[in-house]
């Protein structure tokens, strides 16, 4: 067990290291002058030179890399070129929007997908199954921005239950924030729920064919009881993998939804920074997103161990 965690931690650190090297190479070392790029076409060469010194581009690549990584380790991500505030502060504020939004969306998608998948599987081939899976198909196909706009039209414009755009900030209290995040979270969650429900359904169907379900039935459990007591935990294993992937995807991929609802999240920050050629911010956010993805993968690996006792063994395998 300890061995397993240690091995996972090591691979986590190595992945991060490789990621920082790649990011650094692409943004700073690959031919082309970052300072000139950031100044844009209209910038004078004197201004570019000044920026080059500000960015430390006059120093060697190795030295720059270590000072960048060293800075990040001590929490110093540099100063944003466009916003003129520390990047760490910028990212910190945005994370407080993006992470709750992602977690909210994932909780919703799991709450929808698991029951839908189980019901579909246990009534395989029935009208219930066909219509649920038909809906899931539609859910996968609908672009989430279109669905988001539809939701705004219904729940904000017509019914007036939610405000259409914006985020009050956590100072305004917990519930107002949750309320503001609800429609965006639902829009993010539905396509994910549709995918997840399909995975859950096929996973349950597969598990129900297993011999231990038959053993459970022979003990006197009904189909339903056997599914709930013996099938679910086993069926969750592939679902967990998908959930982990979806978390990373939602965290970084919320740009469109964040833009529609004017939410100050990470996705929008990346988008704006790219548009404003603020390489300092781009570099830091990409690194942080890599960190998030790697951490989530690590977390999922740990949950596997909790779910499946066969992974608790020391040694090979």
């Amino acid at each position: 067990m300890a061995h397993y965690i240690l091995k996972r931690l090591l691979s986590l650190v190595i992945t991060l290291l490789v990621a920082t090297i790649i990011i650094f190479l692409i943004i700073e070392v690959v031919p082309g002058d970052p300072a000139a790029y950031m100044m844009g076409l209209s910038g004078s060469s004197e201004a570019a030179d000044a920026l080059r010194i500000e960015l430390g581009l006059d120093k060697g690549a190795l030295e720059r890399y270590f000072s960048w990584v060293g800075g990040m380790l001590s929490g110093d991500f540099g100063i944003s070129y466009t916003y003129r505030v520390p990047v760490s502060q910028l990212i910190g504020e945005r994370t407080l929007v993006s992470v709750p939004l992602t977690v909210y969306a994932l909780i919703l998608s799991t709450l929808i997908a698991v029951p839908v998948g189980v019901i579909s599987a246990s009534r395989r081939g029935s009208i219930v199954d066909t219509s649920l899976m038909g809906m899931a198909q539609v859910g996968v196909a609908i672009p989430n921005f279109w669905f988001a706009i539809l939701m705004v039209l219904v729940f904000s414009t017509s019914l007036g239950w939610f405000s259409a755009v914006g985020f009050p900030g956590w100072d305004a209290g917990f519930w107002p924030c949750i309320k503001a995040l609800t429609i965006p979270a639902v829009s993010l969650a539905l396509p994910q729920a549709a995918i997840l429900a399909r995975v859950m359904r096929s996973s349950v169907l597969e598990v129900m064919q297993e011999d231990y379900i038959r053993t459970a039935r022979a003990k006197g459990l009904s189909r339903r009881q056997a599914l709930i007591r013996h099938g679910l935990r086993n069926a969750m294993i592939p679902v967990l993998t998908i959930l982990g992937l979806q978390f990373s995807f939602l965290l970084a991929g919320g740009i469109i939804i964040e833009s529609i609802f004017s939410l100050p999240g990470l996705g929008r920050l990346v988008f704006q920074s790219i548009a404003q050629r603020d390489l300092i911010v781009v570099k830091s956010i990409v690194t942080l997103l890599v960190l998030a993805v790697v951490l989530i993968t690590f977390l999922v690996d740990l949950i596997y161990v909790l779910v499946d006792p066969r992974l608790r063994e020391e040694g090979r395998g």
């Binding site: 011999d211 231990y212 053993t215 459970a216 013996h230 935990r233 086993n234 779910v307 499946d308």
Partner: peptide
């Protein structure tokens, strides 16, 4: 098939 007749996670 005794190898698969028991629930592996219990």
């Amino acid at each position: 098939e005794p190898m698969t007749a028991l629930n592996p996670v219990e």
